[in-house]
Design a binder for these strands. Structure first.
Lengths: 419, 419
DNA sequence: CTGTTAGCGCCTTCAA
DNA sequence: TTGAAGGCGCTAACAG
């Protein structure tokens, strides 16, 4: 018999009551392992005479019926509090009792009701990831999903779950985010990429009193622990390498104005240029990107601008790979030799870069470690026993030196060679 | 004054008690809008003499202190149930009362405690997305993040949240997934891509009694509503188009063996070939991919195999874009003209395809609609009033006809031209 | 239309 | 070491 219909349940409940068994908890006459008794909820409803209601409900499916802690307690012949203890602090329960309880848990397939637990202890084990507007697809585009994946895995290993809060199309969605935090659903938050912290009216994420970690963007100045890649240093080193090869003029394809990565990466370029004693005018800046998405479009436009230049720089530095790839493709189709006439370098480490013609030199973001580190820091913030985590963690990008960069044809002027 | 320290609170609590105010709820003498009373939790603790405990706790921060429904009720001078009703069924409350309540809610910045609500009503508004092993990065690689994004947005518009359950590295993570479902945390699940439904011991996702929607893979045979792209038809049409151009032999770059998309897409190719009366031998199948990840590697290997063929097919059909791109790049570097000597077609619609040399003809998956549709169906399943959703929803891919396909140079034999 | 009341399932304190 | 009891914040049935 797979289903116990509700009428059977009700009859049994009534019988149990007539025979003087305690009416609410533990009907007492039922075979517990068969889960052949209804929940007290229904008992009570029945007692109140709302019989039709119960009968009208779906029959109880043995497959999906989930036992309660008191079922376990009854089967193991202990009190619920003992079961609770056995599961939470196994050390404080008699070994033999504990074994009985564990056996009962296994037999019934008991899983604690998380909602009740959350209510009781006042916290949850859910962590929120806040993504910026066109979310997964925007911002540092390719890498967001990988980072997210890494965050989710790390959290899962510690028993936490990750909910994705995309910043919404509508104000309602926007309101959602602080509400999640304030409503006690969420225990901590990881904010990805360049967004203002969500707020709605007088509720704000920052004011929700939950730990926040910033990922990919440095918010350590605001006191928010941040995990970032070393965008600036990586770019500086890469450009210094180009300068070492003999390049003296640069075409920079800028990302969306005001974006954190754009600012940092350009700063890296500028620092390298000025550190070598070159004038600012060694850099020609191409603006126009509105987002990191559609980088290919930006790359094509940049190529058009580049091709129209009277004195073309010998190196193109792109804020992100997509633009670099499209740029490179376009200028090559106009008979610009890469890397002979023009070196190109991107940023992000998109896998496709290795399969361009020529393979694209780029700076690979440490996606997995970024995500894992941010998750670890959040976990540390949630664990009151853990040490205070660092307010700023910088992880290095990897310089993937490929065939799109070389010494300029015109002649590598003598310059201190850099490794 | 920004902080109210706990001592102040405690004193006030005691005073309130001495003056005969009800000791538990609603201290009564406090200025509510100032939130200058502690929660009953603390009152009780104080009453029980655990004074030191309270004092030892963090002071109450006005910024993060969240008021309860009874605070709102008190401020609006109604009962909590009325507040509850006003927020849930506004129609069943007097207009004037409702306004007072709303005002109080605004004034206090009240946000309902979701954990308590979940416990009480027995459900939550969280939906789970189950991803296959290397999750976001694997499977139909590029498109998973976009699909997920679309799912999340659609759910958010209906007030649902999305938690990401990556299938774990460890058994513990695996166990996690059914537990989430059974533990009442999750109200429904969307399973993405090709995975077995998670299970652990006698707990399984399928047996958790929550609605499940399958996305990207057709599980309608198992009674699970599925949302899929028309992989097979799209591929068939595309190949028929190639045949219409005059191609008679095909090199197929297969995806991971046994994968749903691989099977469907190859079937589409085979159907088109046999429908035109060509022999099976018109297809040369290149196997070897272990996952969709590292498609570039697969493409390169496939190219090597292709180049070694004595009689080279005039068209290459790839199961996914990455492999097609790497394949095309490699054969071109060996002086194979594309599309002159060889037409290449991919699958997925990766944006980078438009910027290859030559731009790659491909079949674009309707990522946004796939995600949105799956979310809608899940929402319908969760809404008992909604109509039974279709068990299988097929969304069409878009044929992006670009420069990598053309009539074979050898001569387009007469064939019924297809549009 | 509104107030009273009784739990949702679990954890935790207190007493035995 | 164990059991009994009470309440976390909210909702919904029921009675005015």
């Amino acid at each position: 018999m797979k289903f116990l219909d509700c009428w059977t349940c009700f009859v049994a409940i009534i019988q149990a009551r007539r025979s003087g068994a305690p009416p609410i908890h533990g009907i007492g006459r039922w075979s517990l392992p068969a889960m052949a008794y209804h929940r007290p909820k229904a008992c009570k409803a029945a007692r109140r005479g709302r019989i039709r209601r119960i009968m009208g409900r779906r029959p109880i499916d043995h497959e999906t019926f989930s036992p309660l802690m008191r079922d376990v307690a009854k089967l193991a012949d202990v009190a619920t509090s003992t079961v609770s203890r056995a599961l939470a602090n196994p050390g404080r329960v008699n070994e033999k009792t504990r074994c009985r309880i564990i056996a009962a848990v296994e037999q019934l397939g008991y899983v604690p009701n998380a909602a009740a637990r959350n209510l009781r202890v006042g916290t949850s084990d859910i962590v929120m990831a806040v993504l910026s507007q066109p979310a997964v697809a925007n911002d540092a585009s390719q890498i967001i999903p990988e980072v997210l994946q890494s965050v989710a895995s790390t959290l899962a290993d510690s028993g936490f779950n990750l909910v994705i809060a995309s910043r919404g199309r509508s104000a309602a969605t926007e309101k959602h985010i602080p509400d999640l935090a304030i409503g006690g659903i969420v225990r901590g938050a990881i904010v990805l990429g360049s967004t203002e912290l969500p707020s709605y009216g007088r509720r704000s994420l920052a004011g929700a009193g939950i730990p926040i970690v910033s990922l990919l963007e440095d918010r350590s100045a605001a006191g928010i622990p941040s995990v970032v890649a070393n965008d600036r240093e990586a770019m500086r080193e890469a450009v210094l390498h180009l300068i070492g090869l003999g390049h003296r003029s640069f075409f920079y394809i800028a990302g969306p104005a005001g974006n954190y990565h754009e600012i940092e990466r350009f700063a890296g370029l500028a620092e390298a240029v000025s550190a070598t004693g070159l004038s600012d005018r060694a850099i020609i800046r191409h603006e126009g990107a509105r987002s990191f998405q559609n980088g290919f479009q930006t790359g094509i436009e940049a190529a058009r601008v580049y091709l129209a230049l009277k004195r073309r720089p010998t190196a193109a530095v792109s804020c992100w790979d997509d633009a670099a790839i499209a740029f490179m493709g376009t200028v090559r189709s106009q008979r610009v030799a890469v890397p002979g006439g023009l070196s190109v370098i991107g940023f992000d480490g998109a896998p496709v870069g290795a399969f361009c013609q020529p393979p694209l030199t780029t700076l690979q973001q440490p996606t997995a470690s970024l995500g894992a580190k941010a998750a670890e820091i959040l976990l540390a913030l949630l664990d009151r026993d853990a040490a205070e985590p660092p307010v700023k963690t910088v992880l290095p990008c990897r310089h993937l030196l490929r065939a799109s960069t070389a010494a300029p044809k015109g002649g590598a002027r003598k310059a201190s060679k850099r490794p």
